[in-house]
Amino acid sequence: MAIKSKSRQKKFDTRIDFTPMVDMNMLLITFFMLCTTMIKSQTLQIALPTNEKVEKEQQNKVKQSEAVTIIIDGKLTDKGLSDPNEGMLYYYDGMPETDKLATTGESNMKQIEFGEILQERNKEVVLKIADLKKEWKEMKFSKNEEINDSIYQEKAKKIRNDSTLKRPVVIIKATPNASYAHVVSVLDEMQINNISRYQIDRINEVDSAMMILLQGQNLKK
């Protein structure tokens, strides 16, 4: 009996309690989750003309029949910010009819909703791209996804720049009160409607005069 009791060793519990470890890990995870930026912002590439004064003869005049001028207007809030939901769009085709404006007080400027007109104007290109997109979805160019993609991109670019199609040249003008969000969404609209030729330009007196006139007419109604 005496020998037996001597050999009895106290059994230690070999299991370690992991709960504090888990607690700490969870804390760290929360920290990292809150501090990381998973979504990277997107960018929109734009190209503007140089500011240098170009000789009149060198300037490329846009064909009147192709030109569409879009004017973006907005409202300023009390804080001097521009409300992105209060944007207004106006447009006119070709040149502003200044003679008519001076004599009868009528202009060819109209107010539009977003996305209107542009799709209509660029119909030939939009339809062709839609066809192309169908083929792309069916993987007609290649079985390989990447090759299929690159062929599609190349073909789409060709269509967008195809001079035999009727394509509009969009001139975008923004009033000082227009919100940045609205300008970006108009630029976006160019991408959505596959318009390859667009330009940001400065607003001039004729444009603002026509806009004030139109706003006055809208108020009367």
């Binding site: 960018t43 970006v184 969404s185 976006d188 991408q191």
Partner: peptide, 12 residues
């Protein structure tokens, strides 16, 4: 930043 459909990522 304003929303856009562009899918280009910002270079890091």
């Amino acid at each position: 930043t304003p929303p856009s459909v562009s899918e280009d990522k910002v270079p890091d």
